[in-house]
């Protein structure tokens, strides 16, 4: 977080720029050291990165308190692809690979909700993923106001069926197929606010 204005202290390292990062190191609840650095020196010492990590870590921590508490079993959850455990993700606040989002899914959903206030992507999709089978669609989902119930011609399976199918595809990591199905489901659903 950028704290702004205020009387300026100079950075204790380069003594050139204004100190913008103020740290208090504690040991046994006693202040051991107060440090004032500019952002450049703080970044050089890896301090800014640490601060950002701690924000996400904090969110992760607050999630734990709210929920039933991440059990020791959850901490051991491990991604078969990148090898990162949930505990490591919590410590670093960075995923190791795309698959982590599914491996740690039950925690990820809550975390995303906290960060973004949402858990579902509604923006554009990569060209490659949608261009494969269907003929190149000219534009990503247009915001055109849809007539409320534009029935699909195919003897449509129910929403519930499709959603189940979607879940299966996600589990099987058939993301391209899942993406297409997801859009189909979205089109079937009545539009929510803010298209």
């Amino acid at each position: 977080m950028a704290h702004v204005a205020q009387p300026q202290k100079m950075c204790e390292v380069c003594k050139e720029s204004a100190a913008t990062v103020h740290l208090t190191e504690m040991s046994n609840q006693h202040v051991v050291l107060e440090r004032h650095l500019c952002d450049v020196c703080a970044a050089k010492q890896g301090l800014i990165g640490k601060i950002q990590v701690s924000l996400v870590s904090e969110l992760l921590g607050s999630l734990k308190e709210k929920g039933k508490g991440a059990s020791a079993k959850d901490a051991d959850l491990k991604c078969p692809d990148c090898g990162i455990t949930y505990a490591e993700f919590r410590a670093k606040a960075r995923f190791g690979c795309a698959r982590d989002y599914d491996v740690f899914r039950k925690h990820v959903v809550g975390l995303l909700e906290k960060i973004h206030g949402a858990t579902e992507h509604v923006g554009k999709r990569p060209k490659g993923a949608i261009k494969a089978p269907p003929p190149a669609a000219p534009a990503p989902p247009p915001p055109a106001p849809p007539p409320p119930a534009k029935a699909h011609k195919t003897p449509a399976p129910s929403l519930a069926e499709l959603e189940k199918e979607l879940e299966k595809l996600v589990k099987a990591e058939e993301y391209e197929k899942a993406a297409r199905l997801r859009d189909r489901i979205r089109d079937m659903k009545p539009k929510k606010e803010g298209s």
């Binding site: 996400v56 606040a93 960075r94 995923f95 795309a98 989002y101 599914d102 990820v108 975390l111 995303l112 960060i115 973004h116 949402a118 858990t119 579902e120 992507h121 509604v122 923006g123 554009k124 999709r125 990569p126 060209k127 490659g128 993923a129 261009k131 979607l166 595809l169 996600v170 993301y175 899942a178 993406a179 199905l181 997801r182």
Partner: peptide, 24 residues
Amino acid sequence: SARLPIAFHPQFGHLTACPTNAGT
């Protein structure tokens, strides 16, 4: 993205190293 396979998730959108960037 037409030339490179992009990490994309049907629910979460573009997948990023930090969860604060996911989605768009």
